[in-house]
Amino acid sequence: MTQICILTAAPDYFEDLGPARATYQRLLGDDIAFRHWTYPGDLAEYELVLPLLVWGYQRDSGQWFAFLDQLEEQQINLANPVSVLRWNSDKSYLLALEKAGIAIVPTVISEALSPDDIAEAAQKFATDQLVVKPPISGGADGTFRLGLGEPLPESIAGREMLIQPFQPAIAQEGEYSLFYFAGIFSHAILKRPAKGDFRVQEFLGGSESGTDCPAGAQELAEQARRAAEQTLGTETLLYARVDMLRDPEGQFRLMELELIEPSLFFDHAADQGALFASSVEAG
């Protein structure tokens, strides 16, 4: 087995990384190393570095981007590559994918969020229910559902934010996630929020279950993954999670393309992650 290092969250991150670490040890061997991305030490000794557990990087984006620059300068063998991580760190990549022909959840960017921006987006999207989130975000940090006329939360007022129409399917059906390793489809899950919420993260009460891919889901996932590879001029991504849901007309639309530190939900994979392990070994 190639000598591997997995980068993890900072020591004070609130979620327990223990179960995820144990899963990666099961798949990749007990001798894999784990280093905090905030002070990783010398990574040149490793044949492959995977940023699979850098949860919370968005909380210090300046340090995160400086770290990516350092990895690039040192020519660390990182999967996915630094260019991919840098691009995927800012969710404005959705607009680049839209230009490439990918059906995304409609999105506009406000450089400094104001009530006027909310009103304009509501008119543009023909809805009075919107979702706003920071371009650099994760784990639903800074993400709010706002009705037209509601006061802006102080934490996001005046900040650069993405604005999207609220998608009722998130509560009615759920959000699909499809997983690819070295370009090969592995498995899919359906995530649902807690009653009365719209966020699907487990620590917020969300739940997930294994599922078959409904018609159209895999086609959108593969189109989005390939469009990202073509946009970035990179080889096949080692791992990718594609999040999507149906719009009110029933069309699947891309919510996010997770290429940095996605939870991979191997418990719902028929092979329990064997395809991922073999892809890492081959890569």
Rank of each mutant, 00 (worst) to 15 (best):
I6M: 05
E202R: 08
A33I: 11
L97D: 02
Y57A: 02
A140W: 11
M244V: 09
F198C: 08
Q164S: 04
I6G: 04
P40Y: 10
W87Y: 13
Q230S: 05
G29E: 03
D42C: 11
T107F: 02
D116G: 07
A269G: 14
S110V: 01
E72K: 12
L162G: 06
A274Q: 13
M244Q: 06
L257Q: 01
D12V: 08
Q74S: 15
H268Y: 15
A224C: 14
D69Y: 07
G250D: 00
A103G: 07
E98K: 02
S279L: 00
P11N: 08
I104R: 01
S83K: 09
Q201T: 04
L146K: 03
L50H: 00
Q272S: 11
L232D: 09
G205T: 15
H187Y: 11
V82Y: 15
Q223P: 05
L264K: 09
L85D: 09
L275C: 06
D16P: 01
N88E: 14
I136T: 13
L52H: 06
Q75W: 11
L264Y: 06
E256R: 08
A33V: 13
E256C: 09
F144V: 00
S263Q: 03
G273D: 05
A122L: 04
P19M: 03
S83F: 14
P134W: 03
G233N: 08
L254G: 06
R145Q: 12
L238D: 11
L113C: 05
I170T: 11
G149P: 01
I184W: 02
G216T: 09
E235H: 07
A9Q: 09
I184A: 12
A126R: 13
P106N: 05
L17C: 00
A10S: 13
L254F: 04
Q63I: 05
I189R: 05
L264H: 03
I4H: 15
E281Q: 10
D212Y: 06
G216F: 08
E175C: 10
A277G: 10
V49E: 04
E249T: 02
I189H: 02
Q123P: 06
F166C: 11
C213Q: 10
G210I: 03
Y57N: 00
T38E: 00
F185R: 03
D247N: 10
E175A: 07
S209G: 10
L27G: 01
L162V: 12
W37F: 12
I104S: 05
A33H: 08
I109L: 10
S83T: 15
P168S: 05
I136P: 00
A122F: 00
A182P: 08
Q25Y: 02
T107W: 03
E98S: 09
Q25P: 09
M1L: 12
T38G: 02
S137H: 05
F34K: 06
K91C: 02
N88K: 09
G41S: 10
A228L: 10
D212I: 15
